[in-house]
Amino acid sequence: MELLLWFPGLLLIVVMVLQVFSYAWARETAHNAARYGAYHARILGGTNEDGRQEASTYLSEVAGTLVQDPSIVVSRTAGRVDVTITARPRQIPLPGIDLPRFSVHASGPIEQFTAGS
């Protein structure tokens, strides 16, 4: 009889823990995709489109449906490249809970060839 009283609460706690884990995993995967895109955009001869394409490919292959509606922005200044991914995590359908979008960022210096002396 006590199990009937406690089971719905325990089930809700388990689902909430899974949702927190899913959110953290989606954010970490998106951050890895941003770093991967920044790497490909900053290498010698790399372009912003290379970085965007590689980050998008990483997300589709590694994250699958874990990261939803990603927006990938690659920008370049004189010596740096920045990749920002904004997305939302996959959500377990719980009434009244709406997970916020997250944004992750990665950057690095642009590789340049210098002649040796």
Rank of each mutant, 00 (worst) to 15 (best):
M1S: 13
L3Y: 15
L4P: 01
L4N: 00
L5M: 08
L5C: 02
F7R: 06
L10C: 12
L11W: 09
L11D: 04
L11Q: 05
L11V: 10
I13N: 06
V14G: 06
M16W: 03
M16E: 03
V17S: 06
V17K: 08
V17Q: 04
V20Q: 01
F21E: 07
Y23C: 01
A24M: 12
A24R: 09
W25Y: 05
A26N: 04
R27D: 13
E28Q: 13
E28V: 07
A30D: 09
H31S: 10
R35Q: 08
R35H: 12
R35Y: 15
A38Y: 09
A38R: 03
Y39K: 05
H40E: 06
H40V: 03
R42L: 03
G45N: 05
G46F: 02
G46R: 00
G46I: 02
T47D: 13
R52M: 12
Q53F: 05
E54D: 06
E54Q: 12
A55H: 01
A55R: 00
S56A: 10
T57M: 10
Y58Q: 07
Y58S: 02
L59P: 01
L59I: 01
L59N: 01
L59D: 01
S60Y: 00
E61M: 02
E61D: 11
V62R: 05
V62L: 06
A63K: 00
T65N: 15
L66A: 07
V67N: 05
V67P: 01
Q68L: 10
D69H: 10
D69I: 04
P70T: 05
S71F: 09
I72A: 09
I72H: 01
V73I: 08
V73S: 08
V74W: 08
S75N: 13
R76W: 11
T77K: 10
T77A: 12
T77E: 08
A78E: 14
G79V: 14
R80Y: 14
R80A: 12
R80L: 13
R80G: 01
R80T: 09
R80M: 06
V81M: 11
I85A: 02
A87I: 05
A87E: 00
A87Q: 04
R88D: 07
R88K: 14
P89V: 12
R90F: 15
R90H: 11
I92M: 15
I92R: 08
L94I: 14
L94M: 14
P95H: 15
P95Q: 14
G96N: 08
I97G: 12
D98K: 13
L99S: 15
P100S: 08
P100F: 13
P100Y: 09
R101Y: 13
R101L: 09
V104H: 02
V104F: 07
V104I: 05
H105E: 15
A106Q: 04
S107N: 07
I110L: 11
Q112A: 08
Q112E: 08
Q112M: 07
F113Y: 14
T114P: 00
A115I: 01
A115P: 00
G116N: 11
G116Y: 14
S117E: 10
